[in-house]
Amino acid sequence: MSDCVNQSRRSFLEKSAVVGAITIAPGILLHQVANAKPDDQPVSDTVRWGMLINTNNCEQGCTDCIDACNTEHGLVGNNRPQSDTQYIRKVTLRDKMTGHELSLPLMCQHCETAPCVDVCPTGASFQRKDGIALVDKHICIGCRYCMMACPYKARSFVHEAVNNQTLSAPRGKGTVESCTMCVHRVDKDQIPACVEACGKGKHDAMMFGDLNDPNSEISKELEKHGGKQIRADLQLNTAVRYQGL
């Protein structure tokens, strides 16, 4: 597993001075994320953004991450849980033998070999060089192939006219959407809203950082304690990893 994550570590080390992320406690990253790029520079594959979720710290019934995500992206439902947009949801797993239950947040896993990108007929479903999987709603035709292809059911279709979007998260009827890893925040050196909320709520179950940087908090933690992929058998090399599964 960590082989995949480490793929471009060496080249990264050669290319740039590495600055560690500033932490105040494990899991809580200060707003500033190291090695963020200037506004006028394109993203590059020296960085691969990822998340590590410690399910042992994730409280059952807590929705801090979901609430933060909904606020950040202006996701207002229409009281139709079957079709209302979800970028992130809580999943409860129960071990049938021991009865042990654990709860975890599930969102787009930002797969390296993303099925949603493979199947898109227009190129709307794409991946940025830094690994973030997105839908370019300007060219999405709403065919929903990507929704069918995603093994994590991470994508939603906007069925109804939307108003009062936030300025930084445009979304509208007839297009597909999913977790953007808060790309608008990440590009401004901030961490995703869910990770921030989890830390603020003192749960510390989520960590965000650069998987390609061996000195980032997330890479160090992955190296020390590992982190599993959900449905690792699909070999998608996801950027979201879980501990305690």
């Binding site: 506004d39 394109p42 794409f126 997105l134 300007h138 608008h184 401004k188």
Partner: peptide, 12 residues
């Protein structure tokens, strides 16, 4: 639009 969406260029 395309530069921001696909390359993350966020000049104002």
């Amino acid at each position: 639009r395309d530069e921001t969406m696909h390359e993350g260029i966020r000049t104002s």
